[in-house]
Write a protein that binds this DNA or RNA. Structure first.
Length: 94
DNA sequence: GCGATGACATACC
DNA sequence: AGGTATGCCATCG
């Protein structure tokens, strides 16, 4: 999900930034699937050169998420995505 | 109290 | 497509 979607689902309205803020201070004990939250552009919200970026990228890849030029297909992977032939065909084209 | 700062989003150009 | 501008709002110093 995107930060905005999580914020909305959590009843935070448009406070997408609060989601990232929360993830940052969340105790590791919570075992949150933080890597599954990305920005609305379908890109990882960390500087491309940061260690955190690599970390999240690796985690998602290990979960079967495919990145095309540093970006993933939101329509394909969002929590409520409906996987149909239309989406997949579009995915394979690019 | 107040301005600066984000793991953001959207609108324009 | 990619860069800039603006809105956003809890945290921080």
């Amino acid at each position: 999900m995107t930060y905005a979607q999580v914020a909305d689902r959590a009843g935070l309205g448009r406070a997408a930034r609060m989601v990232s803020s929360a993830l940052r201070k969340a105790p590791p004990k919570m075992q949150l699937p933080w890597q599954r939250v990305i920005n609305s552009q379908g890109k990882i919200s960390f500087p491309k050169d940061s260690a955190e970026y690599i970390r999240q990228y690796e985690l998602l890849c290990s979960e079967g998420v495919v990145f095309i030029k540093g970006r993933l297909n939101l329509n394909l992977y969002q929590a409520d995505a409906v996987i149909d032939e239309q989406l997949w065909s579009g995915f394979f084209e690019r």
